[in-house]
């Protein structure tokens, strides 16, 4: 009598509804797969802004490097340059004075992509003192 009772208990324990547990685990797995986002690493390009009341004063000291960004074109000290030439010029200048201030004048019609490219080049060669101003 005792022996048969033990067997019955064992049999009942084994009948745990595993299928619902698997359903839950499956749903969780689907949830995590769907909500997973690729982590995008961002670079933050620090810039100095002009004082609000000095926005129109475009007088620059002669020892400052001036880069102008127009849609599709970049000018260094007034001369049009390709991005590769800009990089070479900046590399040379940063070797002379890494603390040199770079004034980046940006056309209102230039795209952010072009602005970021130039700022990125400056950061890449070690010029971190970047000031930006918009051309009115």
């Amino acid at each position: 009598m005792k022996k048969s009772r033990k067997r019955k208990i064992g049999a009942t324990v084994l009948s745990v509804p595993m299928s619902s547990m698997i359903d839950v685990v499956f749903l969780l797995l689907i949830y995590f797969i769907v909500t997973q986002k690729d982590e995008i690493s961002e670079a933050h390009l620090a810039v100095n802004l002009p004082a609000p009341d000095q926005a129109q004063q475009s007088e620059t000291k002669p020892n400052l490097l001036e880069i102008e960004i127009q849609p599709g074109q970049v000018f260094v000290q007034g001369a049009p340059r390709s991005l590769e030439m800009v990089r070479k010029t900046l590399t040379y200048l940063s070797g002379l004075d890494p603390d040199q201030t770079v004034i980046v004048k940006i056309s209102q019609l230039a795209h952010v992509d072009e602005v970021v490219q130039v700022l990125d080049l400056c950061r890449g060669v070690g010029l971190n003192n970047l000031s930006i101003m918009a051309l009115k």
Binding site: L45, V47, L49, A55, V112
Partner: peptide, 15 residues
């Protein structure tokens, strides 16, 4: 941003 007096400005880009 400038009018508010803030000056620690950064532009975000994909690195």
């Amino acid at each position: 941003i400038g009018k508010a007096g803030l000056y620690r400005v950064r532009l975000a880009a994909v690195a």
